[in-house]
Design a binder for these strands. Structure first.
Lengths: 204, 204
DNA sequence: GTCTATAGAAGGATAGAC
DNA sequence: GTCTATCCTTCTATAGAC
């Protein structure tokens, strides 16, 4: 017994193809800007065939968002309150940057959602996300109180990690326009820069 | 003789009303997600009346973007190569944060545009913006070479200033969801946090 | 200048053949 | 399961009265 009706291999494969195409299109145009025609073309399927696998455009979008939040919060969950403070925070920054590098479309899907009011995920932000951030902020505040890192507002510290890592995915076009064509991968430079930044910020 | 045909006061006022409404709607839904109905309602005018003042939806969007880039780059242009390095950079951070606080809709309009591929402003990014950043990066690199600030990649420094300041406007919904209702203005905390961050990063 | 009415195109979703 | 054809709604833009 599973949560969902059993699916053949071909059904499973098509659902994944469609979700991949939907991610591509939604992340580039936002929910309202995306069209089923674009998704169908990206998936190599007909428009009605999309709607055989998902009841609506909305359902595709929800399916993408549902899986996203856990992936996005995993690096923060992996922060160990018992570890060495600076290593833990630098490790979080590094993991979050890798996530932006390897899943830029997911990052942009999320950014589109927040930017446009987050109506579909506001409950998650105010619930699950806030709870996790509150816990982590308490840990970081404890480290600062013990003098193991320099004193710093833990909430703004977390915001700054999000802003700095996601910037390279969400504003990729601008970053590459400014750096020019012949440069290294922006993410390599970012990794070194961010390690330096947070080391200098947090070293007591 | 002016660049444009003369306009009555009422025409001028209506154009501004429409652009204000368009900014509200475009910044929240992106270009394709916005509708003329929404803009008309926000402006308190009929839909055909909008199209009496602007030839198309596209024209409204372009009018907004045209004015935006200069406003957005002004704080960077105000950075004085002859000034005290740390003060100049901290001053830039502060001005940029104020801009995000006072013009969050403009920030989100810009973010929507970049996020969705920046097709309408890519030439400006690769031309005017890149030139200005290259010049500023050279100034900052010089300061670092002279030991007046700590060594740091000037391009990633500028990216980090953009990311950190615009985050509070673009991801406002998420910031407020995490901080909860009863807290201070996020921008107050951000101002103090960012000053600390860049001071610790850049003090030699 | 501003409106009502509507043309014409595009988009989401369904019917029904295969 | 997958397609063609099509319905119905929404959207941009225009026509034309006032």
């Amino acid at each position: 017994m599973t949560d969902h009706p059993p699916r053949t291999r071909i059904q499973q494969r098509n659902r994944e193809t469609i979700l991949g195409a939907a991610l591509e299109v939604f992340s580039q145009h936002g929910f309202r800007g995306a069209t089923l025609d674009q998704i169908a073309q990206a998936a190599g399927l007909s428009k009605p065939n999309l709607l055989y696998y998902f009841p609506s455009k909305e359902a595709m979008h929800e399916a993408l968002l549902a899986g996203l939040m856990d992936t996005w919060l995993a690096p923060l969950r992996a922060l160990d309150p018992g570890g060495e403070p600076l290593d833990e925070i630098l490790g979080y920054v590094h993991r979050k940057l890798l996530l932006s590098r390897d899943f830029p479309r997911e990052s942009r899907l999320f950014a589109n959602e927040i930017l446009q009011g987050a109506e579909r995920i506001r409950p998650t932000l105010e619930g699950e996300l806030k709870t996790l951030v509150d816990q982590t902020a308490a840990v970081i505040a404890g480290w600062a109180r013990e003098g193991r890192i320099a004193p710093v507002d833990p909430y703004h510290l977390i915001f700054s990690i999000w802003a700095l890592t996601q910037h390279y995915a969400d504003f990729d076009v601008q970053v590459r326009a400014v750096l020019g064509a012949g440069k290294d991968d922006p993410f390599d430079g970012a990794d070194r820069y961010l390690a330096t930044l947070f080391r200098r910020l947090l070293t007591p």
